[in-house]
Design a binder for these strands. Structure first.
Ligand code: ZN
Ligand code: ZN
Ligand code: ZN
Ligand code: ZN
Lengths: 133, 133
DNA sequence: CCCACAAATGTTACGTTATAACATGCCAAA
DNA sequence: TTTGGCATGTTATAACGTAACATTTGTGGG
C-alpha cells in the first residue's frame, strides 16, 4: 500500500531531522501544513511504525526514521548520542545468539526487543577531548 | 545512608507487586498511608534508582524492584512477559563482545544502556499450548 | 533550652506524552 | 446513486512527569 499524504509529511519531517523528534515536536513543525491535533501525528506514526519505516525510541519518547533496512538478520539496536542527538541504528547478529542461549535456559518466547545505548558519538567525544584543559 | 520512611514504603510496594508498577499505580496504593501527590512517589523512586534498588522500565513507563544484585559484571537486561507482567532481570556479561562488529566500526563511548525484551514467560507459553484446540 | 540551618516532606500548579470517542469527508464497488 | 470502508478532523481527557515554593523535622552550636 501507498503512504497517505499525512504519513508522507510525518515521514518527511523525521527524515529531515538530524535527531529524534517527539510527536509534539513533529506536530509543531506541521502546524503550518494544517495539522492541528496530536491524534493526527500518532495515527501516522502508528502506520509508519507498523511498516518499519520509523521506530520509537522508548528511552526518549521520540521517533526516528528507519535507517535503510538492511538484509541482515538479528536484533535491532540504537546508539544514541546524548550530546548531539545523533542516532545510529544497527543490527546485532550475535546478540541474538547470546540471548538465544539465555532464552533456552529460561524458556522465553521473544516478541519485540528494545535495545538503546546512550553515550557519546565519535564527533562529540572528539570535541570533548579538544576542549579539555 | 538509611532509607527514609517514604522510600521504604515505595520500595515495599514494588516488592509486594508481581509486576512492574507505574508511579501513579504506586501512588494509588499508598494513598491510604497519606501519600497525596506524584512528586512524593517520583522523589522516592529517584533515590531508590540512584542506589540501584529499583529500575525503570522505559518500554512500560513503570518501575520494578531490583532483583538481588548479582556480583556479575555487565549490562543489565530485562525479559518482560507481556501476558502476566513477570519481569526477569539478568546480566549480559560483555555486551562489547556481542556488539563486536558495530563497535569496531564505530567509536561510541557508552554511558547507560536500556535492554528490554518483550515476549511470553514459560508459564504463559504453557498456558497457551494447553488451551490450543 | 533556643536558635539557625539543612534535609525531608508536603502542596499546588503546570508541562509533556498519549489515547478515546465521535464527527466529517472521500472514494470506490454494487 | 447509494452504501460501506477508511482516512481524516476535532474535542476532550487520561497518563506520565517536574517545577516551585511552603512546611515540618531533626540536629548541632550558642
Ligand atoms: Zn529500522
Ligand atoms: Zn554526538
Ligand atoms: Zn537490578
Ligand atoms: Zn507470563
Amino acid at each position: 500500500m501507498q503512504l497517505t499524504t499525512n504519513q508522507q509529511r510525518v515521514l518527511a519531517t523525521l527524515q529531515q531531522s538530524s535527531r529524534p523528534l517527539s510527536a509534539y515536536k513533529i506536530l509543531e513543525r506541521l502546524k503550518s501544513e494544517g495539522f492541528k491535533a496530536p491524534t493526527q501525528i500518532y495515527r501516522a506514526l502508528g502506520c509508519l511504525a507498523e511498516r518499519g519505516l520509523v521506530h520509537r525510541l522508548e528511552s526518549l519518547n521520540a521517533y526516528v526514521r528507519c535507517a535503510p533496512p538492511s538484509t541482515e538478520q538479528g536484533v535491532r539496536a540504537f546508539a544514541i548520542c546524548d550530546s548531539c542527538g545523533h542516532v545510529d541504528e544497527f543490527i546485532v547478529p550475535s546478540l541474538n545468539r547470546y540471548l538465544g542461549t539465555w532464552m533456552k535456559q529460561n524458556v522465553f518466547s521473544l516478541g519485540s526487543s528494545t535495545i538503546e545505548l546512550h553515550g557519546k558519538c565519535a564527533t562529540c567525544s572528539k570535541l570533548d577531548r579538544t576542549s579539555d584543559s
